[in-house]
């Protein structure tokens, strides 16, 4: 029952991914590792598309992953799975209208969770870098250490990091610019 499986996996993602869209990335990578529903490379493409289309990134990713796995119904089940924990938790909080974020236990838990979430997104970023900046498979083939590095990609990476910190522009501009450069320089 693929739909039930999708629902459960995205329910878990919605329940444990704290801090918004990008925080779902490590969980999706974990799903890809365990079920093989989509590849790492497809996941990066999805992230790019999710960032450059309207709507919450997390929902866009869930729709895309769900569709890739089991077409339209897959997308529906992925989105429902991802939002269900939010609805339950927020309704509970709104119902009791407790100042949830000011509760000392909650503050203490988040004191621990925030650096972990940064580490998780870092790990997901490492996977993205493995696919987009390095060429491990070519190295395994040629055993030439220089073949690991994709010089063009690393150069572009450095330029984008520099520009991101210099100009606070929306990600979509960087994605579009990178697409044009990719076409011109045949990435």
């Amino acid at each position: 029952m693929i739909y039930l499986q999708i629902f459960i996996e995205f329910f878990k993602t919605g329940l444990f991914a704290i801090g918004g869209g990008l925080a779902t990335l490590p969980f999706l990578q974990n799903i890809s590792d365990r079920f093989g529903w989509f590849t790492s490379q497809e996941l990066i493409d999805m992230l790019a598309i999710s960032e450059s289309t309207p709507g919450p990134i997390g929902i866009n990713m869930a729709t895309y992953v769900g569709y890739k796995t089991a077409h339209f119904l897959g997308a529906i089940f992925a989105v429902i799975g991802e939002v269900t924990p939010s609805i339950i938790i927020i309704v509970l909080i709104a119902h009791y209208y407790m100042k949830f974020n000011e509760h000392p236990k909650v503050a203490a838990a988040f004191y621990g969770i925030r650096p972990a979430v940064t580490g998780l997104i870092g790990a997901a970023g490492f996977e993205v870098a493995k696919v987009s900046l390095f060429n491990i498979s070519k190295y395994l083939h040629t055993h030439n250490i220089l073949d690991i590095f994709q010089v063009k990609s690393l150069l572009l990476f450095a330029v984008i990091i520099f520009l991101l910190n210099k100009y606070q522009k929306h990600p979509i501009y960087f994605l579009l610019g990178a697409a044009v450069i990719g076409i011109i320089f045949k990435f």
């Binding site: 990008l22 990335l25 490379q41 990066i44 493409d45 992230l47 790019a48 960032e51 997104i121 997901a124 970023g125 993205v128 870098a129 696919v131 987009s132 900046l133 990609s153 572009l156 990476f157 984008i160 990091i161 991101l164 990600p171 960087f174 994605l175 610019g177 990178a178 697409a179 044009v180 450069i181 990719g182 076409i183 320089f185 045949k186 990435f187």
Partner: peptide
């Protein structure tokens, strides 16, 4: 090619 470039940008954004 476009997505080759875009993936690099995604890595930089993350």
């Amino acid at each position: 090619h476009a997505f080759g470039g875009i993936r690099v940008a995604v890595a930089a954004l993350v």
